[in-house]
Design a protein around this nucleic acid. Sequence first.
DNA 1: CTCTCTGCAAAGAATTTGCAAACAC
DNA 2: GTGTTTGCAAATTCTTTGCAGAGAG
Lengths: 150, 150
Amino acid sequence: MTVPAHTARIAVSDLPSALAAVRERGLRLSCARRIVLEALYEADGPLTAEEIARSGRCDLASVYRNVEALETAGLVRHLHVGHGPGLYLPAAAAVELIVCERCGARADVDPRVTADVRAAVQAATGFTPHFDHFPLAGLCPRCAYDRQEG
Amino acid sequence: MTVPAHTARIAVSDLPSALAAVRERGLRLSCARRIVLEALYEADGPLTAEEIARSGRCDLASVYRNVEALETAGLVRHLHVGHGPGLYLPAAAAVELIVCERCGARADVDPRVTADVRAAVQAATGFTPHFDHFPLAGLCPRCAYDRQEG
DNA sequence: CTCTCTGCAAAGAATTTGCAAACAC
DNA sequence: GTGTTTGCAAATTCTTTGCAGAGAG
């Protein structure tokens, strides 16, 4: 229900700049902060808090505290897929996804398509949808097919 | 991640038909089942399991067991709004919503709009989005305005 | 009567919080 | 040094499960 009050997301697309940005935002570059950023920048997709904690052996509570701090600082973002745990990724990763509710498959959605959708829903409802935090849910081609067959 | 294996949703738009339908599906019309259906048909919007339980003084565990059974029977559906608890409603309520992530305000989305969106995303990704279970998230006009100002 | 369903209590998953010791600067 | 951050443990929230007794048909 709540969207964190982000600092404007700045283009920080590699680990060293992200680490530097932590200091620039007036935050200490603590051990857990480093672990979170290293994990997210080295991963090839979104990670759970659990995965981040395991990757660098720090406490799960510290991961939660720090992804929040780093999200407020505009360096990290998170999204929610289905009923599962939250997934964290670098804020710079401008991914808009659609996720299969049946099998969990994910696909990127072209920003031009989401822009069109945003405009259409805006015009019809006055609300502006976005897909950063709660990605689109649906069925992948295979699951849609399986469902029709039986 | 999982979509329940619904029985085809049949047009059951009032409480007496819903109660009859329970028996027609070969289910017993138990006390808790009656409480769930009465609560959902008498409410003017989606309810949490907690609210259903309070409404008829039955155990929360029974509510969870029964909304699931009734969903499988095609009489109830549920959706997830933001980080909050699941919300349950009669399956016949063909609502497609957009929910403000900031203040929780909800608006209906015209089915023609969702149909267009569905087609556009389908064409672009192969995935078929739907908005029954995870409604669209975004900002309501007021929150969008507040955000721009400060 | 038989099988299903109920309430209660306990377990589970994800996340948050309190607190004293450890750390960044 | 001083204020922040850490790890650990306990609390919270939502949901699920085990079980013995009550209820539906």
